[in-house]
Design a protein around this nucleic acid. Structure first.
Lengths: 153, 153
DNA sequence: ATATTTTAAGATAAAAGAGTCTCAATAATC
DNA sequence: GATTATTGAGACTCTTTTATCTTAAAATAT
């Protein structure tokens, strides 16, 4: 799989948060319910995003998590790197250590192109952009719920 | 990671075989030594490739495995699909079941493009092509050995 | 102060991936 | 036929990922 399950959950949660009132703390429980992700598992993932400076958290009643920056300033890449690290974009396709222009493997060149395409996708899409698209077209964020069900209740 | 470790080992072994005399059975032990992959583990992986019709095997002395088709007719894709399956090329980036043009997730369109780029890479490169390139430029197939060490002994 | 709501952190469990080991089956050679 | 070289198949272990559970810490409200 391209992205780990944790990463996918992190992305879904980030999209959820990007649609919320700016500055407002959203309880993780609410997100885990809406997104149909295990509460404890999601909590851990969001802790990572908090540690990486993508989210801020606040304890106690009216607490929760929120995006540090505006959703329009957060490319998917930031979330992916925070959770999965950057090896997807640096590692050799044949798993050889130190593969690069100086000591390439046979598929280094082609793979480098593909990697650029992945990087391009993750860098060029911001959370806000995807939320906008998702709302306009009522796209999905869970197996069976569109943006409307998730956000307009 | 894009490809599983099994898949990467499978690819390395397939490249190794593509460089051998056509029709000759190569012992797995020889490959595991040269490629620095655990013998038993490699055996299992090659069993999969045999089951998938990419390799033929022969037991007993002078036995081993060999490619069924010519290396020039085997794109990397065949090996990847045989070991990792095709979910890399079909699955939703957000992990949503049934994501597609009819019921897309917000990043479906962009992800579909990226996926095409991956598919293109895996379909357009054949084993022979990569072996040729690897030999000409003495590229690497293991952490520290180039094609010359592997094949000209 | 106490109770309540929330995140934080750690221990544990379950599942999947990676890797090892043993023994059986097959084929060649002597 | 016995021995040897090889793949095949299954059990087993180790590690990582995924997931759950419990307790602690922080903040609010009463």
């Amino acid at each position: 799989m391209l992205l780990s399950k944790s990463c996918v959950y992190g992305l879904r949660a980030a999209l959820y948060l990007a649609n919320q009132e700016k500055g407002k703390y959203i309880p993780i429980r609410q997100m885990s319910d809406k997104l149909e992700i295990s509460f404890h598992f999601l909590t851990k993932i969001l802790q990572q995003l908090t540690a990486e400076g993508i989210l801020q958290s606040f304890k106690g009643p009216n607490g929760g998590v929120r995006l540090v920056r505006k959703g329009s300033e957060i490319p998917l890449m930031d979330v992916v790197v925070a959770i999965d690290g950057s090896k997807l974009l640096t590692e050799c396709a044949l798993g050889l250590p130190g593969c690069g222009v100086k000591a390439p493997c046979p598929i280094h060149d082609k793979w480098a192109e593909t990697r650029d395409s992945i990087r391009e996708m993750l860098e060029s899409s911001t959370l806000t952009e995807l939320v906008k698209k998702g709302k306009e077209e009522n796209l999905r964020l869970t197996a069976d719920s569109g943006f409307d069900i998730l956000f307009n209740d």
